[in-house]
Simulated assay, not measured.
Amino acid sequence: MAYFTGLLQTNLYVKDINQASKWYQDILGFTIAADYGTTVILAFGDSPSYDEGKSGIPVLCLIESKDAETGRNTTHPVLGISKEHCGDLYNELKKNDVEVEESPSHKGHFKFYDSDGNMLEAFCPGIYD
């Protein structure tokens, strides 16, 4: 059963969202695909934007966090959940004793951890539209 559609993005926790966003644009040539204030989605040059719902297009997501280098706020991949399995994956992971985020705002968008404690994030594009 294929729950995932591909890698959506990699989240990077940063101390200053404005400084980090400017650096990625000025130094590496990224463009802003979406800006939510304390979260900025960056795309590679002329690649389709995040908002177009194209799964599998890797982008960087900068997330402002004052404790960026400590705790469980770590760099991690975000895996796209297929629309077909958007509501099922969370329950399936819990059923298999996988550590998952408790009470996420949506069961189509949550964090979970592999057997070594590495954080992964699952997201079903379009659930917040």
Rank of each mutant, 00 (worst) to 15 (best):
G117R: 01
V14K: 00
S47F: 10
I81F: 00
F112H: 10
Y24W: 06
M119Q: 11
S49C: 05
D26N: 11
T39N: 09
E69Y: 07
S82N: 02
E84K: 13
S65Y: 11
L62W: 03
H106T: 06
Q9C: 09
A2H: 14
Y36Q: 12
Y113T: 07
C86A: 15
I63A: 05
S55G: 10
I41K: 00
T10G: 00
V14Q: 05
S55P: 09
Q9I: 06
A122G: 03
H85A: 10
G117D: 11
D35Y: 02
G29Y: 08
M119V: 11
G45A: 13
I41D: 00
E69K: 10
L7E: 06
E52H: 08
K83M: 05
G126I: 03
D16F: 04
L93M: 04
Y24C: 04
V100Y: 05
A122H: 14
S49H: 13
D129Q: 12
E52W: 07
N11V: 15
S47H: 04
P58N: 09
A34P: 06
L79W: 15
I127G: 02
E84I: 07
L12P: 05
A122D: 03
A43F: 05
G108M: 01
S21M: 07
F30Y: 02
D129I: 01
E64D: 04
A2I: 14
G6A: 01
I57D: 02
L79T: 10
R72K: 13
Q9V: 01
F30S: 02
L7C: 07
M1D: 04
E121W: 10
A122C: 15
V14R: 00
K94E: 09
Q9M: 13
L8S: 11
S103P: 03
S21C: 09
I63D: 05
L89Y: 01
G126H: 11
I41M: 14
L93S: 02
Q25L: 00
Y13I: 05
D67E: 15
S82W: 01
G80V: 03
V98I: 14
